[in-house]
Nucleic acid binder design. Structure first.
Lengths: 102, 102
DNA sequence: AAGTTTTAGACAATATTTGTCCAAATATAA
DNA sequence: TTATATTTGGACAAATATTGTCTAAAACTT
């Protein structure tokens, strides 16, 4: 199962850059980026966007990865997870249709 | 769409108790309980369990409500929500089958 | 071995969540 | 209406969690 960290690492490997360089470009501490790649920290959404832009990765894909990992982390040890997700989706749809958009 | 707050309020109305009484029984500030009922605060999981026990409500149902509201709150303004939830579920299942249980 | 890159961990700064209190608002009863 | 009781809003401090920064050790390259 490919993690967000894997994606970031692959992207960096793909262009053969060292952390120090990426760090300078995206203005994020290299130690943080290292941790993102090893899934020891989660980037903020802003950081994620900056990395996506720099690496030319799909915003959408990264955001999906980012949110889904957050949710999975939360529910990992919980029961009834598929019901929870089903209800969550209903609520979201309800919300979206009733407050249209924002 | 029935909220967690609605459920708690209905339960209390069902047994006709005032906040002060419930508060004393479950040891949660009455103002907090009021806010739970109005969805202005979210109970902690522990508080939720104590309320469930006191009101004789299904733990499972309340937990589903609690988590799904949390997730919905997070994703409310996001795009690709159904994809996010789909991927989240895959990750959870992956996690559960590979670390079986806990 | 020397130099470079990556990583772990401690730490302060910041932000978020939580519990508590009280007085204003609302409802109920006399 | 007035008096009494209940509910609610809001401010605040305490506790907890997240975030960014730095440093030096570990791992890797030359």
């Amino acid at each position: 199962m490919k993690t967000l960290g894997d994606t970031l690492k692959e992207a960096r490997d793909g262009i053969n850059l060292i952390l120090r360089k990426v760090s300078a470009e995206v203005d994020i501490d290299q130690s943080l980026i290292s941790k993102f790649e090893k899934n020891e920290r989660k980037p903020t959404k802003e950081q994620l966007i900056r990395l996506a832009d720099f690496y030319n990765l799909s915003h959408k894909d990264l955001i999906i990865s980012w949110y889904s990992e957050k949710i999975a982390e939360d529910l990992k040890y919980s029961e009834s997870t598929s019901e929870i997700l089903k209800v969550a989706e209903e609520k979201i749809n309800y919300y979206k249709t009733h407050n249209n958009g924002k």
